[in-house]
């Protein structure tokens, strides 16, 4: 067996198992969860952790572990779609700004700067209030928040690419605009955007939980890590375990996607590797 280059792959090796576990948990929830997450068992309300219920039961006697596993579905779906919205919107705006330059660039990026300076959670909360509380709207609200970040990133990368000589060469031999973007610019944008996406995903999961925690995201009885932690908060004295499993899951998820982002950054951009 060859030696593993820990400096290069260490973060990836550390984060990937958790990431895989997470996707498995959401894809195979019904196989993995020991109980029905909606099954109320009044005989076992606020039961502490035991061999029957590893992480105890909540105020309605539902199995905390099963609900935590099912809740990963919402986190993953919201994360994926919100990131997709932010990535698409941001990439289009970023490339447009860099491609046309001048006034369009100025206006678009000033707007992005202002959007970027809003506290993300505040914007999400307001959008949820006016759009109405639903998971679909949560994806939209969180996605919109990511647009400025991706726009800044793709604009910066596009501008760097534009200054490269091979692009001038491509223009000289008569490659047209859309083709230029498709063939020369997008492949260069890809790497940094993937890194940003991993970090944005962790942030999306965090924002969704925060919204659900405030009662503006997933609505009970549907389990989400945020609303489970909120429920647990109310019973923190009698049953601290209710918020323990979803809190740990949320924390692990955010942590490992952050590390994944760092790992990808090291892998894709050796210049940044310090």
């Amino acid at each position: 067996m060859g030696r593993i280059n820990w400096r290069k792959y260490g973060l990836l090796i550390f984060s990937l198992p958790v990431v895989v576990l997470l996707f498995c948990a959401s894809a195979f929830s019904s196989f993995l969860a020991p109980y029905d997450p909606y099954y109320l068992d009044v005989m076992y309300m606020l039961e502490g952790p035991s061999s029957g219920h590893l992480f105890g039961t909540d105020e309605l006697g539902r199995d905390v572990l099963s609900r935590t596993i099912y809740a990963s579905q919402i986190s993953i779906v919201v994360g994926l779609i919100a990131v997709a919205i932010g990535m698409t919107g941001g990439t289009v705006i970023g490339i447009t700004a860099a491609y046309f330059g001048g006034l369009i660039d100025n206006l678009l990026m000033r707007l992005m700067d202002i959007l970027f300076s809003f506290p993300a959670i505040l914007l999400a909360v307001i959008l949820m209030a006016s759009l109405g509380t639903s998971i679909l709207n949560a994806m939209l609200a969180i996605g919109i928040i990511f647009i400025p970040g991706f726009a800044r990133l793709t604009r910066a990368v596009t501008q760097t690419v534009q200054r490269q000589q091979y692009l001038e060469a491509a223009i000289c031999i008569g490659v047209s605009g859309p083709r230029l973007i498709w063939r020369e610019i997008l492949p260069n944008v890809f790497g940094p955007v993937v890194v940003e996406a991993a970090v944005a995903f962790s942030y999306a999961v965090l924002l969704e939980s925060a919204l659900s925690f405030l009662g503006l995201g997933a609505q009970p009885p549907e389990p989400s890590w945020g609303n489970m932690i909120n429920t647990g908060r109310g019973f923190i004295e009698q049953a601290p375990w209710i918020s323990l499993a979803p809190g740990m899951a949320l924390f692990l998820c955010v942590f490992s996607f952050n590390i994944l982002g760092d790992g990808l950054r090291d892998l894709l951009d050796p210049k940044l590797n310090k």
């Binding site: 965090l206 939980s209 945020g226 932690i229 647990g232 908060r233 923190i236 942590f255 952050n258």
Partner: peptide, 22 residues
């Protein structure tokens, strides 16, 4: 630092209340 940056503040708050207050 990575751990700190990944903790959801509302969960940390819940843990802090449990430990230091209750």
């Amino acid at each position: 630092a990575t751990l700190f940056g990944s903790v959801p503040n509302f969960w940390l708050a819940t843990l802090l209340i449990y430990l230091f207050s209750l």
